[in-house]
């Protein structure tokens, strides 16, 4: 178990969004404010880590034929727990993330990691895999949020700073509002993946 390798993988070389191209629905849909990105990133990290640990713990007794169904039930369980928890204690986040919280169940990252990693590795390695992949995911979310919010509405920290409105850095008549719309999601993610591919190819040379 190589912690440093797992860390670099989660953040860069095997980044779930930019390299493995998983979990895109949520990445583009909710990255319109900093609060959303942070909240979703943390939620997914928690669920990913918990399900990685449990699936790794029960991997010896899960019959191969129904493993996908078992993974889904476990993941759905944790997602519902986080959903209820958020509704009760952080309702603003539950409200703005909306239907995308239960949709974490079908977030390809979680099922993907269960299948690719925690079904075949020990509990501790799976725990760290969940944490690092989650951090990689969260960082991409935050990058998208910051770019889309800053260039789209001119604010920073929407939902959290300045009583929920965010600090207005660029005056409101300048930014391209289009970036906070679905178009912006596609474009910004496309550019980020391109940037990552360019960076990775440079580092290989």
């Amino acid at each position: 178990m190589n912690l440093k390798k797992q860390f670099m993988d989660g953040l860069l070389y095997q980044n779930p969004v930019l390299v493995q191209v998983l979990g895109m629905c949520s990445t583009m849909a909710i990255t319109t404010s900093f609060f959303n990105g942070l909240g979703m990133g943390l939620a997914v990290t928690v669920i990913l880590t918990l399900s990685n640990v449990i699936i790794s713990a029960i991997r010896k007794i899960v019959p191969d034929k129904i493993r996908i169904a078992m993974f889904i039930v476990v993941i759905a369980g944790f997602v519902t727990m986080v959903d209820l928890f958020l509704q009760a204690f952080v309702p603003a986040l539950a409200e703005s993330l909306g239907v995308f919280i239960p949709l974490i169940v079908v977030n390809c990252i979680i099922l993907g990691r269960a299948e690719a990693f925690s079904y075949k590795n020990g509990v501790v390695a799976s725990f760290f895999d969940g944490v690092f992949q989650g951090i990689g995911y969260t960082l991409v979310l935050l990058a998208m949020c910051i770019i889309r919010e800053l260039l789209g509405a001119g604010t920073f920290g929407g939902g959290l700073l300045a009583g929920g409105k965010g600090i207005q850095i660029i005056p409101s008549q300048f930014p391209a509002g289009m970036l906070t719309l679905p178009v912006g999601g596609f474009l910004v993610l496309g550019c980020l993946i391109a940037a990552m591919q360019w960076a990775l190819s440079k580092s290989k040379k």
């Binding site: 019959p63 129904i66 039930v73 476990v74 209820l84 928890f85």
Partner: peptide, 27 residues
């Protein structure tokens, strides 16, 4: 296979019932 899946569902349902009883009030 069916029993394993069923048992897993029951365990998950039980845990969720617990979480639900805690969060029902605040919600």
């Amino acid at each position: 296979l069916t029993v394993t899946l069923f048992v897993t569902c029951v365990i998950v349902a039980g845990l969720l019932g617990l979480v639900n009883s805690v969060t029902e009030g605040p919600i």
